[in-house]
Amino acid sequence: MNGPESPPRLRLSAPPGSALAAGLSAARARGPSDAQLRALEAGIAVSLGAAAAGAGLSAARGQAPAPAVAPAPAVAPVFASAGALKLAAVFVALAAAASGVTMFRYRQRRDVVQRSSPVATAPFARLADAPAPAAPIAPAGQPLPVVEPRVTRAEHPGRTRHGADELALIARAQRSLASDPAAALALVEDNRRLLAQSSFAQEAEVIAVAALARLGRTDEAAARAARFVARFPDSVHAARMRRVAAIGRDAIIN
């Protein structure tokens, strides 16, 4: 199926110094900055929706899906006051943020057979895009194609530190976030120094904020989100952390 012989690439045959050579080499060199790339990744994650990013992607690859985000029904009834709405809003904001984190998990699982699966994205895109207020965490009437929150074994940070890299830590924390936020928080906190130096420092903080919010420690979540924004103003997670920080403040005022 060969055609005629491929001509030598112009880049190589163009006279050095010609506008052609310079233009072609510049065209090959351009591309997104790392920040643009991360923003793109986050944008895609949000578009696919938090749960779809977890369930859809894993299902597409034949994995047992890990708990994506917000198995909120278990949490919501605990907070019956007006604060509950604020808390719900925090979760909504976090759901989108966590989706970004969720994607990182897939780096380490590459050996699974792909299987076809419908991907339900719409409800989650709405969930993720919803401006903070009011939305109950579970989209009414829409069964989450999620995800039995797997009852995790107790996480042992000490063991993890020896057994896996930072990414594995983040993945484990993210996984236990839904079922056992205290464990997720402990995991991130116990490995704080390691994670802070890794390229997943931001994701670790996002998980910590999410865990605090899940534990009902809204004030701490908000304060930590505010610190996150101060520290990583350009982060892809910054917008959502900002929202969490703002919501937390309101919650305190009211």
Partner: peptide, 13 residues
Amino acid sequence: STSFREVFDKHAR
């Protein structure tokens, strides 16, 4: 088998 994650990492730029 190809994951979306891989596709993104490999092809985004």
